[in-house]
Design a protein around this nucleic acid. Structure first.
Length: 593
RNA sequence: GCGGGUGUAGCUCAGUGGUAGAGCAUCUCCUUGCCAAGGAGAAUGUCGCGCGUUCGAAUCGCGUCACCCGCUCCA
C-alpha cells in the first residue's frame, strides 16, 4: 500500500472512531459481535441524518411547485420486481473461477479450447502458501512459459500483498491433463476452472404471510424508485398536476451486497433519497413548441422552459443537485462522470454520476439518469394498466399538424430507432401506433431520475468536515485538535450554551435562561462542566458551529451597555462577537436553517 | 466468495502460558474571569464468541463472527 493509501486508511479509521466515540454511528448489534454491513446512527448521527433529510425534502418539495412527496412501503407485490427486471438481474446463476474468484454468469461462458494443466498448490518466498489443487486451461497456441507467467500473475493478484512478487511464486506439482474442445467449465478470461452454478441473489428475500411457503416469497425493496413508478397514476390522479412534475421519496432499501465495505458507504440496509421527474417525450415538445431547445455550453439552466426536452431537463437536474450539495457544504469536493454510451443501460439515454471525495477514493454519491419511458412502460406492460397521461395542450397542437408533418416526424423517429447503439429498434408498426396515441394527446411520460444515498451523503459530510490541527500549548506539549467543519444547516448541535464558571449562580441562571430561549427552535447543548476551553473543544469535535458564553459582562459588571449581551463564538477560526440576548434567536436561525 | 491483517476499558493501544494494564475520555468534589489548566477521588473489561490443549489460556490449536486491506461484485 502506498503512503497515501495508508494515510487515508488511517484517516478513515479516525473518522470511524470519532463516529463511535461521540455517538454518530455505531456498529449494529455490537454486543452480539455485530451484523455484517449494517450500521446504527447514534444521537448525533440521527440528528445529522434528519437535517440532511429535511434539507433534501425542502429543496425538492417545499421550495418547488412541481414536486410531490410519497412514502411507500418497503414490501410490495413481488410482480413489481419481475416487471422492473430486478428478479432477473439480481438473481443470476453465477459460476466462480477457482483461481481468481472472478464470477461470470453461468449462461455467458464462451466455449474454450486448450489443454488442462493441474497444480497441487503454490508457494512464495514470503512464506505464503496455497494448499489446494489448481486447475487451469492453457489456451490453444499459448506458450507454456507465458502460460505459467500468467497463472502466477493471477494467483498473485488474488493473494494480495502476502504472496509478494508474482515472478517469485512457485507453482507446485505441474501435471498436464486432457485436451478439451468447446469446454464451458473454464473462465473465458483467466482460464481457471469454474465452480458449480450458484444463484447470487442481491435482493433480500422474505415471506409475506405466516405460512412462509414459496408462494409467499417477496423481497425487501432494493430501491425506492419502483414504488414511485407503481404509484405514479394514483399520485397523478390525486394531485391535479400536469407533466412536467416529479414525485420524490425518502426510504430504506436493502441489498445483499457481496462485499459491504468502507464503513457505511456500501451497506446492506441503506436509505435512498430519490426523485422521479416526469417529462413529456421530445416529440410532444416538438409538436407543442415547434422545436426542442438545444443545449449549448453556458446555457441558462436556472428556470425550466416549456421547450426543454429530456437533455435540458437532465442537465437542469444535474445543476439543481449541484446547488443542493453546495448548500450543505459539499460544493468543493464534487466530481462528475458522464457515462459513455457503452456504460449506459440499454434503456438509459444519459446518466451522470455525482462523485464525492472520500478518504477511500472518489465514489458515487448520486446518479442522475435520463431513463426515457422505460420504467412506466415496463409496469404498463406487466400490469396491463395504462400509465399514459392525457395532455390537452398536445392534442390541440397536434390537431394543427398536416399529415405530411406527422409523417415526417414518424420517419425521423424510425431513422433514430435504426441507428440505436444498444437494444433492439422499435418495430415500425409500434412506432406508428405510438405516434397515433401521441397525436391524440396520450403518452407515457419520460423520466429524469436523480437518485442519491442518504447514508453516503452523511458519510461524505462527516469525512469532508473532519479536520485535524496540531497545537502546542505554553508548556510545549503538542496535542491534536479535531474539528468537524460541518455546515451549520447540517450540524447535529447548532449551538452550545456555557456559563463561564459554574460556581457562580448568577452566570448559571442566565445561561439556563438563554438555553431555554433557544432550545425550542434548534438543537442546543448546555454544558457547565470543565474549563471553557475544553467545552469549546468538545463542541468543535462534533461540529457545533456556534458557542454562547455567559460571562460577567452579561451580568452588567462592566456597565449597562454590555448588560444582557453574550459572547458568540464561531467554530471556524474561533472569533468572538458580542451579541444581545434578544438578537440571538434571529441571528442564529438565519445561519442554521 | 477468495487471500492477508486485526479484535484487550468509551477511544487509542501495551501486555508471548502464572492475580488485567497505561494514556486520553467519563463521573463526583474542590479549584478555574474565554479556547482540551490544576488538585483529590471514583467507576469501567467473561481480553469478539465457541470448543479444545494445559495444573493453569488474553497468550497455544481449531472453528466462528465482525471490521480493515487487496481481488471480485456494484441493477
Amino acid at each position: 500500500m502506498s503512503t497515501d493509501a495508508k494515510n487515508n486508511t488511517a484517516l478513515m479509521e479516525k473518522i470511524v472512531s470519532l463516529c463511535k466515540r461521540r455517538g454518530f454511528i455505531f456498529q449494529s448489534s455490537e454486543i452480539y459481535g455485530g451484523c455484517g454491513g449494517v450500521w446504527d446512527y447514534g444521537p448525533l448521527g440521527a440528528e445529522l441524518k434528519r437535517n440532511l433529510r429535511t434539507a433534501w425534502w425542502n429543496a425538492m418539495t417545499r421550495d418547488r411547485e412541481d414536486v410531490l412527496g410519497l412514502d411507500a412501503s418497503i414490501l410490495m407485490n413481488p410482480a413489481i420486481w419481475k416487471a422492473s427486471g430486478h428478479v432477473e438481474t439480481f438473481a443470476d446463476l453465477m459460476r466462480e473461477c477457482s483461481l481468481t474468484n472472478k464470477r461470470v454468469r453461468a449462461d455467458h461462458v464462451d466455449p474454450q479450447d486448450g489443454v488442462i494443466m493441474n497444480y497441487t498448490g503454490a508457494e512464495a518466498a514470503t512464506g505464503w502458501k496455497l494448499d489446494r489443487v489448481i486447475s487451469v486451461l492453457m489456451k490453444k497456441g499459448e506458450h507454456i512459459e507465458s502460460f505459467r507467467k500468467r497463472v502466477r500473475l493471477l494467483i498473485a493478484s488474488n493473494a494480495g500483498e502476502a504472496a509478494g512478487k508474482p515472478e517469485e511464486i512457485v507453482l507446485l506439482g505441474e501435471a498436464k491433463a486432457d485436451a478439451v474442445e468447446g469446454s464451458i467449465d473454464y473462465h473465458p478470461e483467466t482460464g481457471g476452472a469454474l465452480g458449480p452454478a450458484r444463484p447470487f441473489n442481491l435482493m433480500l428475500k422474505t415471506y409475506l404471510g405466516p405460512t412462509a411457503t414459496e408462494d409467499d416469497v417477496t423481497y425487501l425493496r432494493p430501491e425506492t424508485a419502483q414504488a414511485i413508478f407503481a404509484q405514479f397514476k394514483n399520485v397523478f390522479d390525486a394531485s391535479r398536476v400536469k407533466v412536467p412534475f416529479g414525485i420524490c421519496q425518502i426510504g430504506k432499501a436493502f441489498r445483499n451486497e457481496v462485499t459491504p465495505k468502507n464503513f457505511t458507504f456500501r451497506s446492506r440496509e441503506f436509505e435512498q433519497i430519490e426523485l422521479e421527474f416526469f417529462i413529456k417525450p421530445d416529440e410532444a415538445i416538438e409538436i407543442i413548441s415547434g422545436e426542442v431547445a438545444a443545449w449549448s455550453e453556458g446555457a441558462d439552466l436556472s428556470e425550466p422552459q416549456a421547450n426543454w426536452g429530456w437533455d435540458l431537463w437532465h442537465r437542469y437536474w444535474v445543476d439543481q443537485r449541484t446547488k443542493f450539495y453546495e448548500g450543505i457544504g459539499l460544493g468543493g469536493v464534487l466530481e462528475y462522470y458522464w457515462q459513455t454510451p457503452e456504460d449506459l443501460a440499454h434503456y438509459a439515454r444519459a446518466c451522470v454520476d455525482i462523485l464525492c471525495n472520500f478518504p477511500f477514493g472518489t465514489e458515487e454519491l448520486e446518479g442522475i439518469a435520463a431513463r426515457g419511458s422505460f420504467d412506466l412502460t415496463a409496469h404498463q406492460n406487466a400490469s396491463g394498466k395504462s400509465q399514459e397521461v392525457f395532455d390537452e395542450e398536445l392534442k390541440v397542437a397536434a390537431a394543427k399538424l398536416t399529415d405530411e408533418q406527422k409523417e415526417a416526424m414518424i420517419q425521423k423517429r424510425l431513422a433514430a430507432e435504426q441507428s440505436k447503439v444498444k437494444g433492439a429498434p422499435m418495430a415500425e408498426a409500434d412506432v406508428r401506433a405510438w405516434f397515433e396515441r401521441l397525436f391524440k394527446g396520450n403518452y407515457v411520460p419520460h423520466v429524469i431520475e436523480p437518485s442519491a444515498g442518504l447514508d453516503r451523503m452523511a458519510l461524505a459530510i462527516i469525512a469532508n468536515a473532519y479536520e485535524e490541527t496540531e497545537k502546542t500549548d505554553e508548556k510545549g506539549k503538542k496535542e491534536v485538535i479535531t474539528v468537524l467543519k460541518l455546515h451549520p444547516r447540517v450540524a447535529p448541535i447548532k449551538v452550545g450554551v456555557f456559563p463561564l464558571l459554574k460556581n457562580k449562580p448568577e452566570l448559571v441562571a442566565k445561561a439556563r435562561e438563554v438555553y431555554a430561549l433557544l432550545k425550542r427552535h434548534m438543537n442546543v447543548f448546555y454544558d457547565e462542566t470543565a474549563s471553557i476551553g475544553r467545552r469549546y473543544a468538545r463542541q468543535d469535535e462534533v461540529g457545533t458551529p456556534f458557542g454562547i458564553t455567559i460571562d460577567f459582562d452579561t451580568l452588567g459588571e462592566k456597565g449597562p451597555e454590555l448588560l444582557d449581551t453574550v459572547t458568540l463564538r464561531h467554530r471556524d477560526g474561533g472569533e468572538q462577537e458580542r451579541v444581545k440576548i434578544s438578537d440571538l434567536l434571529w441571528k442564529l436561525l438565519a445561519e442554521v436553517s
